[in-house]
Each structure stands twice: as structure tokens, then as C-alpha cells.
């Protein structure tokens, strides 16, 4: 029964008549074409309108233009005394919950045998006590850490909802309203800079005190540091101190082998630091 019907179809198609099969084929082609128009047209509409509309929420300081800044961060390890002032200041400035850290200090004890003892009691928040490792320590130092605001960061790449993003002024921020708390980014960050906030259940991290630096103030950690360990640079500015140090001194980044291109530079970084 089927055979003759098919033959009949082919015959009619060959004659240029409309059959159900050819109709469906044309409809499919048309549908995809219309879909492209709708989607791209709609895309253009959304993007265009976004430029004209003022951003919702609190207005940005008029004088601040994110496209006119490019921040970098510098840590001078040789100066750090491990007092934890930066950790405490960050906690207070950004209401960081107890036991979580946007910045923290690690202490390294390294012996001649290459044995490493690394500790960071409460993130270095309350300072450090003397530690006996049982070996002759040949090298010991503190390493303050924070989000590296990487240029090629995995945390932004894998965010499924566009909550993690790179700002025009070279920072990585998390939109709390968008974040669904899936914690992909927490696992992806090779530096352990992120955590899920126990109250908001969204990803939280160093914002480089965006509410401060956009007003021309220093970050809480830099302001609290009594030894000038931490410095904020703006590479767009002429005679920027940090840009000068990066250009002229032996600076290093954490885990360069991961090719994340961090924007947090270290002076005096030892190879044991991961």
C-alpha cells in the first residue's frame, strides 16, 4: 500500500506540486530563517536599549568612568609582618562572615631539606604565634593573598548565568542578584579566592573595595597595612608607582603555569609559594 503512495508523492514533487513532505521541508527552512531574524533582531533591540537606559539601582558617581581605569595590585612580601591588620580591616569593611576570607595571610617555614610547613590560623586574622617545626628553618615569610583578578580567569568563563564578570576597569566581580550559588566558580578558582556566603548563598570574593576605589579611596587592606606591603596601581595613570615597579622590578605572579594572567603581582615571591 505504501509503495504506490510514495511513488505518487515523488511524481507530484517532480512536477513542482506542493506535497506534505516538501511543505514541511520548506517550513523548516523558513522557520530557521525567521528564528534567526527574531533572535538577532531581538538581540539588537536589547543591546541598543540598554545603552539608552540609565542603570537601575543607586546611581554611579558621575565623576567615575570605569572605562578610564585599569587596576593592578602589588604585594611586597619582604615587608609583610603578618599582623593581620588587612584581614581584620577587610572583614569589617565588607562584612565578611567569620571563618571566611576575602584576603588572608599564609606563613611559610622552609627548611634546608625542602620541607615546607605552611599555616594560616584563622586566615592570619588574629596574627600569628611562634611555631616550632622541629627542623632548622632556613627561610620563613608571610604571603598575603587575595583574588588575583585574572585577565583569563576560569571563574568568569564558566559562570552559567553571567553573574561573575570582568569590569571595564579590570576587576572580577560577582553580581549577587544573578548568582545562583552553584559554586562552579568556587571550585574553578585556582587560588581559593571565592566562597559561598553562608547567608546570601551566593559566591563572594574580593571586590578590591570597589565602593572605595571608585571614590578615589584606598582599599581597606591597603589602608590598614602599617608596612606598605600592599599597593593599588592604575596603569592608565601616568607616573603610576605600581606600573613603574612592574615595569622595572622582578615581579612574579602566583601559579603562572595555569595561564590565568593574574593582575596581582608579587615582589620577592619565593618558588615554594603556590
Amino acid at each position: 500500500m505504501n509503495q504506490p503512495a510514495d511513488d505518487n508523492h515523488l511524481e507530484r514533487e517532480a512536477q513542482g506540486q506542493l506535497t506534505r513532505r516538501s511543505l514541511l521541508r520548506r517550513a523548516a527552512a523558513g522557520l530557521s530563517g525567521v528564528a534567526v531574524v527574531i533572535l538577532t533582531g531581538e538581540e539588537a533591540y536589547v543591546w541598543g536599549s540598554a545603552f539608552q537606559e540609565a542603570p537601575q539601582g543607586a546611581p554611579a558617581p558621575v565623576s567615575y568612568d570605569p572605562t578610564k581605569h585599569h587596576y593592578v595590585y602589588l604585594v611586597d612580601i619582604d615587608k609583610c609582618i603578618g599582623c593581620g591588620s588587612c584581614v581584620r580591616a577587610c572583614e569589617r569593611e565588607n562584612q565578611v562572615p567569620s571563618g571566611y576570607f576575602r584576603t588572608w595571610i599564609e606563613r611559610y617555614h622552609i627548611s634546608r631539606t625542602g620541607n615546607e610547613v605552611i599555616d594560616s590560623p584563622n586566615g592570619g586574622r588574629d596574627g600569628f604565634e611562634a611555631l616550632v617545626t622541629g627542623e632548622l628553618v632556613t627561610k620563613s615569610f608571610f604571603v598575603p593573598k587575595l583574588c588575583n583578578h585574572c585577565s583569563l580567569t576560569p571563574c568568569v568563563q564558566l559562570c552559567p548565568v553571567g553573574a561573575s564578570y570582568r569590569t571595564p576597569d579590570n576587576l572580577i566581580l560577582v553580581d549577587e542578584q544573578r548568582c545562583i550559588g552553584c559554586s562552579y566558580c568556587v571550585q574553578a578558582c585556582p587560588y581559593g579566592s571565592r566562597f559561598i556566603h553562608p547567608e546570601t548563598h551566593t559566591a563572594s570574593k574580593c571586590t578590591l573595595c570597589y565602593h572605595r576605589i571608585t571614590k578615589g579611596l584606598l582599599t581597606a587592606c591597603i589602608q590598614a597595612c602599617p608596612r606598605g606591603v600592599r599597593k593599588l596601581g592604575d596603569t592608565v595613570k601616568a607616573d603610576d608607582e605600581v606600573s613603574e615597579i612592574i615595569a622595572t622590578r622582578h615581579v612574579h605572579v602566583l601559579k603562572p603555569e595555569l595561564l590565568t594572567d593574574p593582575n596581582c603581582y608579587y615582589l620577592g615571591l619565593s618558588h615554594e609559594v603556590r
Binding site: 542603570p55 539601582g57 554611579a60 561573575s164 571586590t207 570597589y210 571608585t214 589602608q223
Partner: peptide
Amino acid sequence: GFYRYASLAEFMSKPLVH
């Protein structure tokens, strides 16, 4: 970019503590 631009203004408007 692939993010909510208004989020920046929200960060900027957080209160100063220090």
C-alpha cells in the same frame, strides 16, 4: 559584556566603613 552593568553601580553604592 555578558553581565548586568547596573551591578557596578550597586557595588559603588555600598557604605564606607573605614
